[in-house]
Amino acid sequence: MLIGTFYAATDGVLMALTGPFLAEGRQAGGLALVQTAQALARLGAAVAFGAPASRASRSARRAVSRLTGAKNR
Protein backbone atom coordinates (compact mmCIF):
# COMPACT_ATOMS: atom_id res chain seq x y z
CA MET A 1 0.00 0.00 0.00
CA LEU A 2 2.79 2.41 0.90
CA ILE A 3 4.66 1.88 -2.36
CA GLY A 4 1.42 2.46 -4.27
CA THR A 5 0.90 5.75 -2.45
CA PHE A 6 4.48 6.76 -3.23
CA TYR A 7 4.03 5.90 -6.91
CA ALA A 8 0.74 7.82 -7.13
CA ALA A 9 2.26 10.87 -5.44
CA THR A 10 5.39 10.95 -7.61
CA ASP A 11 5.27 9.11 -10.93
CA GLY A 12 1.50 9.38 -11.29
CA VAL A 13 1.58 13.15 -10.86
CA LEU A 14 4.50 13.45 -13.28
CA MET A 15 2.58 11.50 -15.93
CA ALA A 16 -0.54 13.58 -15.39
CA LEU A 17 1.42 16.82 -15.76
CA THR A 18 3.43 15.66 -18.77
CA GLY A 19 0.62 14.04 -20.77
CA PRO A 20 -1.06 17.19 -22.09
CA PHE A 21 2.22 18.48 -23.56
CA LEU A 22 2.78 15.40 -25.73
CA ALA A 23 1.53 15.17 -29.30
CA GLU A 24 -1.24 12.74 -30.26
CA GLY A 25 0.18 9.36 -31.18
CA ARG A 26 3.46 10.01 -29.38
CA GLN A 27 2.22 9.96 -25.81
CA ALA A 28 3.45 6.45 -24.94
CA GLY A 29 6.98 7.17 -26.19
CA GLY A 30 7.02 10.58 -24.53
CA LEU A 31 5.90 9.19 -21.18
CA ALA A 32 8.50 6.42 -21.45
CA LEU A 33 11.18 9.03 -22.11
CA VAL A 34 10.08 11.06 -19.08
CA GLN A 35 10.10 7.94 -16.88
CA THR A 36 13.57 7.00 -18.13
CA ALA A 37 14.89 10.48 -17.38
CA GLN A 38 13.38 10.33 -13.90
CA ALA A 39 14.89 6.88 -13.26
CA LEU A 40 18.34 8.10 -14.38
CA ALA A 41 18.00 11.12 -12.11
CA ARG A 42 17.15 8.85 -9.17
CA LEU A 43 20.15 6.66 -9.99
CA GLY A 44 22.42 9.70 -10.08
CA ALA A 45 21.06 10.92 -6.76
CA ALA A 46 21.59 7.50 -5.17
CA VAL A 47 25.19 7.35 -6.38
CA ALA A 48 25.85 10.95 -5.35
CA PHE A 49 24.59 10.20 -1.85
CA GLY A 50 25.95 6.67 -1.58
CA ALA A 51 29.58 7.38 -2.46
CA PRO A 52 30.23 9.92 0.33
CA ALA A 53 28.12 7.89 2.78
CA SER A 54 30.14 4.77 2.02
CA ARG A 55 33.40 6.66 2.43
CA ALA A 56 32.21 8.12 5.74
CA SER A 57 31.19 4.67 6.92
CA ARG A 58 34.67 3.27 6.20
CA SER A 59 36.27 6.18 8.04
CA ALA A 60 34.01 5.66 11.03
CA ARG A 61 34.83 1.94 11.15
CA ARG A 62 38.56 2.71 11.06
CA ALA A 63 38.23 5.24 13.86
CA VAL A 64 36.25 2.83 16.03
CA SER A 65 38.72 0.00 15.40
CA ARG A 66 41.62 2.25 16.36
CA LEU A 67 39.90 3.22 19.59
CA THR A 68 38.91 -0.32 20.51
CA GLY A 69 41.93 -2.13 19.13
CA ALA A 70 39.72 -4.35 16.97
CA LYS A 71 40.85 -5.41 13.51
CA ASN A 72 38.90 -4.45 10.38
CA ARG A 73 37.59 -7.24 8.20
Rank of each mutant, 00 (worst) to 15 (best):
Q38Y: 11
G30N: 07
A9D: 06
G29Q: 12
L14G: 01
A16G: 09
F6S: 03
A8K: 13
A51F: 12
A45W: 12
T68C: 11
K71M: 11
A16K: 15
A8D: 10
N72A: 13
R26T: 10
G4I: 01
T36L: 15
A70Q: 10
R62E: 13
L22Q: 03
S65L: 03
R66V: 02
A45R: 12
L17S: 05
L17I: 07
F21L: 14
A9L: 14
E24T: 13
L67S: 03
F21D: 02
D11V: 12
V47A: 14
G69I: 09
A39M: 13
R26C: 00
F49M: 09
A51G: 01
R62W: 03
S65D: 05
L67N: 00
L2K: 05
A23R: 15
V47P: 04
A53C: 00
T68I: 08
M15D: 15
A51P: 00
L40S: 04
L43W: 05
M1T: 02
T5N: 06
L43Y: 06
S59G: 03
T10L: 11
A28S: 08
T36I: 14
G50A: 09
R62V: 08
L43K: 02
E24S: 13
L40C: 08
Q27G: 05
Q27D: 00
G44Y: 01
T5M: 09
A28N: 00
L22S: 03
R58E: 08
G29A: 10
G12F: 09
Q35M: 14
A8N: 07
V64M: 04
P20G: 06
P20C: 05
Y7F: 12
E24W: 07
M15H: 13
L22F: 01
G4P: 00
S57Y: 10
E24L: 10
G30Q: 00
S54H: 08
A45F: 13
R62C: 01
Q35R: 15
L33W: 10
S57E: 10
R62N: 01
A37Y: 06
